[in-house]
Amino acid sequence: MRELFFGICMLFGGVRTLAQNANNSITVFANTSLSFILDDPSKMEQDQTLNNAITIRVASKKKDVTVSVKLAAFTYPFGFVPASNMLQIKWVSDNSNKDYNLVTNPISLQALDQHLFSQEKMKSNVQYYDYIYDFILKSQGYLMVPGNYNFSVLFTMTQN
């Protein structure tokens, strides 16, 4: 009986997280590879910015939605202590006239969801709106030891 209950809960959770329908959707594009190569002192000492690196495409045909972002995974070489502001995204532009509570300042990616913007229910003749973001690697000075740092950024749209 416990197994049955657990199975039902898993099914329920899976539907909520993964479903995406014609009325509501979020699609994220990397307009350029989200890769940084630090191979000389100037790159270690200055912030590295990938301009217009990310497009978040949101359709909200049913209700208002809220979009958030978090650092879902981050692996790094032994001996490195990550700073809380190492990776950032910054709003650049959008073609939406339905957004509100839009955060325009740089947002430091963390393990917890952080609000990006909200979008009102769209008119039926609109397919989606695009939001463009810069992706920024903040300088850590010479504290970044040699090696590969891999990360995954998760964008979540929640229907209000």
């Binding site: 329920f12 909520r16 997280t17 993964l18 479903a19 995406q20 509501n24 959707s25 979020i26 699609t27 994220v28 990397a30 590879s33 989200l34 890769s35 940084f36 190569i37 630090l38 191979d39 000389d40 002192p41 270690m44 990310i54 879902a72 070489p77 992706f135 690697l137 010479y142 970044m144 030891v145 040699p146 090696g147 590969n148 740092y149 891999n150 990360f151 995954s152 950024v153 998760l154 964008f155 979540t156 749209m157 929640t158 229907q159 209000n160």
Partner: peptide, 21 residues
């Protein structure tokens, strides 16, 4: 289900390659 806030997610991956400098 009736009270649920539906959440849809999408992710991107990237990396930083750091050389001995």
């Amino acid at each position: 289900q009736a009270a649920a806030q539906y959440s849809y997610s999408a992710s991107l991956t990237g990396n930083v390659s750091v050389y001995a400098i």
